[in-house]
Simulated scan of single mutants.
Amino acid sequence: MQEPVEIVERRTATDVVFERLYEEIVSLKLMPGTKLSEQEIARRFGVSRQPVRDAFNRLGNLDLLLIRPQKATEVRGFSMPRIEHARFVRLAVELEVLRDACSVWTESHAEALERIIDRQQQVIDRGQPEKFHELDYRFHRLICELGGHPLAFETIEDCKRKIDRLCVLSLGRAQEAATLVEDHRRIAHALRRRSAEEATAAARLHLGRLDETIADIHRTHSEYFE
């Protein structure tokens, strides 16, 4: 009998450059309008220009970089039409996921979701709202997985990534993050009751909060927008 093959996930140079730049753009270490040079980034990471070019293209597909031939690549500003489209698609998918999840939700599912919410509350209590971001992804991913639609999170994740920077600006205020934790508790409670009506209403309230954040940021930081 052959020995089982061990599968090892290998990260390419493109992956490394993409992940680091993505984190820096989303965390606003690289602000909208910042110019990026393939040559300088390649030198920084000790790689050739091709992995950098590939990473730039991936970031461009997420609307995080503006890539123009014969012109400097720069961190893209927020686009209201793209934000509104991402919000529309995400809401539609999440509502359908929740409706189906309510029909299969179990007590063990509820307990797993509660553990994530408890961890979210812990980072807020410690004054670390920036760590809420990753746990927010876990919360929504788990609902998709346990609700029977694991691939749906790929669409949700793509939409979230298009507006992650706005979320970071919002979560920089501890009260904003605390409010989102309470929203998550409402969604979890509705799932536990297997009430699709309550779950979708809670999700609409939860996702709708970003509208106020977007409007506020647009008023106070119009230079971030295209």
Rank of each mutant, 00 (worst) to 15 (best):
H206M: 00
E176W: 15
H133D: 02
R165D: 01
G33K: 10
L36P: 03
L30A: 05
T106H: 09
E23R: 04
R161T: 03
K162R: 15
A13Q: 02
G60E: 06
Y137M: 09
G208I: 03
D136M: 13
I25Q: 02
L205Q: 01
Q175C: 14
T34I: 05
M1S: 15
I124L: 08
D63Q: 13
V168F: 13
A72K: 14
M80A: 11
R87I: 15
R192T: 13
L59N: 13
D118L: 02
E182P: 02
S108D: 14
V123E: 05
S195D: 14
L169R: 15
I83K: 05
G33V: 10
L59G: 12
L64S: 12
H184M: 13
L135G: 03
F78N: 05
L166E: 03
A152Q: 06
R209W: 11
R43P: 00
R99W: 08
L205V: 02
R76G: 10
E134V: 13
P32T: 02
C144V: 06
F225K: 08
R53T: 01
I143W: 06
R141G: 02
F45Q: 03
L142H: 01
E23S: 04
L62I: 11
F18C: 07
S37N: 06
L64M: 15
A203H: 08
R76L: 13
C144P: 05
R204S: 02
H85R: 10
L205D: 01
L210T: 06
F153T: 03
Q50P: 07
E84I: 04
D125I: 00
F132E: 03
T34P: 03
R44W: 01
E6W: 01
F18K: 09
I25V: 05
G127N: 09
E23Q: 05
A196E: 07
F132K: 07
L210F: 10
R119E: 13
S222P: 12
L171W: 15
E84T: 02
H140W: 08
H221V: 08
F18T: 11
H218C: 04
E145S: 12
Y22M: 02
T12P: 05
P32F: 02
M1I: 15
T34W: 04
S170A: 09
T213P: 00
H149L: 15
R76K: 14
K131G: 01
T73Q: 08
S108P: 12
A190C: 09
R43L: 01
D216M: 07
L135T: 04
R90M: 14
E197M: 14
E182N: 05
I116H: 10
R90C: 12
A215E: 02
P129F: 13
S27P: 05
P81F: 09
